[in-house]
Design a protein around this nucleic acid. Sequence first.
DNA 1: CAAAGAAATGAGTGATTACTCACTTTACAG
DNA 2: CTGTAAAGTGAGTAATCACTCATTTCTTTG
Lengths: 229, 229
Amino acid sequence: MKDEQVKGEHMLDDYSDALSAIFEQYLQTDTEITDKQRRILEAAVEIFSEKGYAAASTSEIASRAGVAEGTIFKHYKTKKGLLLSIVSPTIIKLGAPVVLRKLEKILEAPYETFGDFFRALLRDRLEFARKNTMTLKILIQEVSYHPEFQALLEELFSERIFPKIEKAIEHFQAKGDIKKLPSTTILRWVMTLGLGYVGTRLMILPDHEWDDEWEIEQMVEFITKGLAP
Amino acid sequence: MKDEQVKGEHMLDDYSDALSAIFEQYLQTDTEITDKQRRILEAAVEIFSEKGYAAASTSEIASRAGVAEGTIFKHYKTKKGLLLSIVSPTIIKLGAPVVLRKLEKILEAPYETFGDFFRALLRDRLEFARKNTMTLKILIQEVSYHPEFQALLEELFSERIFPKIEKAIEHFQAKGDIKKLPSTTILRWVMTLGLGYVGTRLMILPDHEWDDEWEIEQMVEFITKGLAP
DNA sequence: CAAAGAAATGAGTGATTACTCACTTTACAG
DNA sequence: CTGTAAAGTGAGTAATCACTCATTTCTTTG
């Protein structure tokens, strides 16, 4: 049977975008994906982000996806396996290689400032968060209850993100761009400011009228002045 | 002045502290509280913060509190009622009058700077968060799933916190202390920096060695420089 | 002490949960 | 077409859930 257009009330939005990180994962690993499996993932992301993993039931996911409950367990051994298949790719994409490549380019260009670096990073991650808002909300909500996520994030952060960013901070410190403070402190300031904007922008007050470019420029200026030696 | 000598670094298991906001509520309303009821609250706070509201079972709360399951429902009509009785007082105390009174004093003293204002606020709220870490963790985790919490926070924020802080920001802007930017933007920066420190300090990396006073001073300097006109 | 009401109990309830499995349908190569 | 493996189904299952209630234990007070 083809897709029966039974529902269609909620959605039609941009799931090809909203689930980009997950689908990319399947593309990269050459794993075939069924139409019903895609609908299961879409429904699961919706419901997990709406009511949280623990309060979401597999029966509700099945009915919203328009499949039988057993179909979920044909593709994912457990409910937790379904969660993992949604969140894990997002964690991996979180410290995207794109950013790290960009970062190296910036470090090679001597005329770039710390502000330019921060602006590029923030724009890129804001775009990523826009495309993965629901999945990121699930990650944020569930990270404290699932040690696997903590381990993945811990590794990603301490072995990929932190060393690179630390190098960048030291680079701009040597250049005399920013004050010589512990990179952990600077990193925390920069990250919390960025996260604060992205979180407020997309999750807390998404309906507010936002001028992203203006806000980003103001933050760049704020950070540049605040971190001046 | 008010700071008493700290006994040890790890005093998070001191419930007379950890549940201070909740018990204050009972004191203020002259409600009698049973020993078993106190133990139910303690167990509920522990388990809610450990595994989240939805994944916590009333039977586990009862057994950890050392009471029968029925006892919980003698005091709280529903499981959600138990959650509300834990989180609501914390939300109310979140925009503490102490802070607001302090704020007025600061505004009256013309020699105080925006940095002093921020320092006082951050110290006070860090202390509050230290005493209510588990309850605040529950609040943060559950706020997106319970509209009652959102309504309480919304009201607290837009009717008490925001107007006062906005007044303060405008005061320091008129004084020439800080740059004339929208108070929403400044508030977001100040709040996310503060929250970022408190959250990292108490919830993400509580076992890290922290020098609170040094970190606060650095943040004060960062903000002062960053917001300079 | 005794009466009375409040506090506490724990077995019992129907609803819901994640998950299974024997079975049917579909897709597709030969 | 036929054979076969994968995809999909949905009734069934044991466990667990929040919550009830008839009963017992404790506390207060005259």
